[in-house]
């Protein structure tokens, strides 16, 4: 015999609670964040290139200045070395001071430098 009031209803509905945003939403969000990050990286790379160009040109503008100063110093030392050589070798017959050991007019920086 059925109980008084009848049987209770059969529980057949699915019990699926909400468990956060869907996979598509997650994937989309992550892709968007990554996309923005890569966009910034790309922008940053372009900017880095320009910064490097700025740095290089600041040095290029200074090259003649520093080279001129260095050249004057090198010339001073060369002349001093030549005078020393002339003094030391003055008794040697046929000695040409400052004559290189190479048969060429191309400039070669001295191998031995006195600071």
């Amino acid at each position: 015999m059925p109980p008084p009031g009848g049987f209770e209803a059969v529980k057949y509905k699915r019990n699926l609670p909400f468990r956060g945003p869907s996979a598509l939403v997650l994937l989309g969000t992550v892709t968007a964040i990554c996309g923005y990050g890569f966009y910034r990286v790309g922008k940053g790379n372009l900017e880095k290139r320009e910064l490097q160009r700025e740095k290089v040109w600041s040095r290029i503008h200074l090259v003649p200045l520093l080279m001129a100063e260095g050249d004057r110093d090198a010339y001073r030392r060369e002349q001093a070395a030549l005078a020393r050589e002339r003094l030391i070798m003055k008794d040697v017959e046929g000695w040409e001071p400052g004559k290189g050991s190479y048969h060429s007019s191309r400039y070669r920086s001295p191998e031995i430098v006195i600071l």
Binding site: M67, D71, Y75
Partner: peptide, 11 residues
């Protein structure tokens, strides 16, 4: 170095 002393002074 002796070749460009004049230009270097100008710089």
């Amino acid at each position: 170095p002796a070749h460009c002393l004049k230009e270097g002074r100008r710089v």
